[in-house]
């Protein structure tokens, strides 16, 4: 108990509170655009084109894509939050005020990571809830879905902390979003089942971590997936642990952060 109390002490809670304040204060940039973009996906791919595709794995198309679309916005929301927050704090050096405080590096890494996790969750859950009436589906296993959502958001938020520290320029941060995360998300089976792909691409998909995340989210929502969800959950949890270790390293030893 005392260990928990000291880990989540006032210093930690203050930094977490600051991270939340930041994205709430700029909500027109952080919360509304991803919601809108995702709803456009739902409308374009689901409502407009969905009539032609009808069903995938025995599920109406809009229902099939909704968990993945929500997860995609959760991933970008979580990643963008932490990467830009840490990058800005580093560039303008106000992160120094945090680094010289009595907080441990692990606490700093965790507060940043949880801030981004929360923003990812708000956006992801928002997309899901708003899309539900169009898709007309219910969630088969909400606890599992929430667990996946939290773990995935945590993973990408922690990754954002690493990139925020390591990036020398803001284009390094956006490069990761546009050239790594977005393509992996699009190719991660959000809009199709891996079975629909030619064999070579299907094998390539298995190396895409986002594929497992999308698949697990879809399984929890619909009981329809390409893989067995339990090993997938283990992979997702392992990635979260790895990403957090990275965030901790970045705060502790990362380049361009301390002199």
């Amino acid at each position: 108990m005392t260990l928990l109390e000291s880990a989540f002490n006032r210093s930690f809670r203050t930094l977490l509170g600051r991270e939340i304040l930041r994205f709430v204060r700029v909500w027109t940039q952080t919360l509304i655009p991803p919601l809108l973009t995702s709803l456009l996906y739902v409308v374009v791919f689901g409502v407009a084109l969905g009539g032609r595709i009808r069903e995938v794995d025995g599920v109406p198309y809009l229902q099939y894509i909704l968990p993945g679309v929500a997860l995609m916005s959760l991933i970008t929301g979580a990643y963008m939050n932490t990467s830009t927050s840490v990058f800005d704090a580093k560039r303008e050096r106000y992160i120094d005020d945090i680094l010289i405080s009595p907080m441990s590096d692990a606490q700093i890494a965790l507060a940043y990571t949880l801030g981004g996790t929360l923003r990812g969750l708000i956006v992801g859950v928002g997309v899901f809830v708003v899309g539900m009436p169009f898709a007309g589906a219910s969630v088969v296993n909400p606890v599992m879905l929430l667990l996946i959502a939290v773990t995935v958001a945590f993973t990408f938020s922690a990754l954002g902390a690493v990139v925020g520290v390591v990036a020398a320029r803001i284009d390094h941060v956006t490069f990761m979003t546009n050239v790594v995360i977005q393509p992996l998300a699009f190719l991660g089976g959000v809009f199709y089942s891996a079975d629909m792909l030619p064999p070579a691409l299907r094998v390539a998909t298995l190396f895409n971590p986002i594929f497992y995340m999308v698949d697990a989210a879809r399984y929890a929502t619909l009981r329809a997936s390409d893989t067995n969800p339990y090993p997938t959950l283990a992979i997702v949890a392992a990635l979260a642990a790895l990403a957090f270790a990275g965030a901790w390293w970045a705060i502790n030893r990362g380049p361009n952060l301390r002199y």
């Binding site: 809670r13 203050t14 509170g17 600051r18 930041r22 204060r25 700029v26 800005d88 010289i100 405080s101």
Partner: peptide
């Protein structure tokens, strides 16, 4: 220790008052 660094490094998302209150929070002040 209190440090007033050479370069200005204020958190641009915070107001003047919040800058003080959040800083105090980072240092665990009630």
């Amino acid at each position: 220790i209190g440090v007033s660094p050479q370069e200005i490094n204020l958190d641009k998302f915070l107001t003047v008052e919040e800058s003080l209150l959040y800083h105090a929070g980072y240092y665990g002040v009630e």
